[in-house]
Write a protein that binds this DNA or RNA. Structure first.
Lengths: 141, 141
DNA sequence: GCTACATGCTCTAGTGACTAGAGGAGCAAG
DNA sequence: CTTGCTCCTCTAGTCACTAGAGCATGTAGC
């Protein structure tokens, strides 16, 4: 007889924390699994794969709603993959924008930190730049 | 007699939205201003500068608690500026890490999107990579 | 003075994606 | 049989706002 996968075991195998698994069940991202006599959840291998899929997508910054769509697509392999492609593409554009904006922030933070002469707050470059946006180096923010 | 600055005017001048200004007052980030006879807030120029400071810091991704500390420092210009420097430095390190991680994500998303042949979901690279972390290009995530 | 309409007020609840904690039950090992 | 771990449900908290209800006040045109 196969050993049943407890929620703790599922967490270990998928890398998704126990309360998060329960949360995903609650919001309907993961189907409610069967229960043991003692009312404990037990999972199948397919659930573990689904959890790993979700975790990976979350790491890539996809929103729960996008993941919901991606999971539906995965369940129906004959559909054209334009929707999946579109979601990934949208996310790629987001990430590119975020990188650009973070690079601008980085430049400005470097200016602050380098300009700081470790003296008094009165002549601190960090405080000064924060107080006056005009002192920013053309940062796109 | 000077024209009093209403909350709407303060919002325009500082770039912080009206409900957000009230929120900052509520959490004690901005001192409660004086009120008119009709119980409306009216602000001074110093409040506007403080709001602009907060807005700029928020744009740079500083947390409210850090901003609280930075504001205290600004109020006391004789203090050494190490704390401010430390906060900015911590934020810089965060931003640098975030950029690295986003670059890894970008690479992976590009792989997905480029690999997609616009066919069926069954052979879609997007879904495939999401389902199997092992297919990632050594991404640090 | 009257009528719109904008702007202000307070208060509560909602967002996203979890996370923390209370209070209890089940289960395996020593 | 007791210890200690994992599990259960439920509620509330996190962060930094944002949205909306329901009302009061202020202002511009007539």
């Amino acid at each position: 007889m196969l050993k049943e996968i407890s929620i703790g075991e599922a967490a270990k195998r998928s890398g998704v924390k126990v309360p998060t698994i329960r949360y995903y069940e609650q919001i309907g991202l993961l189907a409610a699994p069967a229960r043991t006599d003692g009312n404990r959840r037990h999972y199948e291998d397919t659930d573990i794969r689904r959890l790993a899929f979700i975790r990976h997508a979350r790491e890539l910054g996809f929103e729960i709603d996008s993941i919901r769509t991606l999971l539906h697509l995965q369940d129906d392999p004959n559909q054209p993959c334009e929707t999946a492609d579109g979601i990934a593409n949208a996310r790629l554009i987001e990430v590119e924008q975020r990188i650009r904006s973070l690079n601008a922030l980085k430049a400005e933070l470097e200016l602050m930190v380098e300009g700081c002469r470790h003296g008094r707050v009165a002549e601190c470059r960090v405080i000064e730049i924060l107080a006056d946006h005009g002192k920013c180096a053309h940062a796109q923010h």
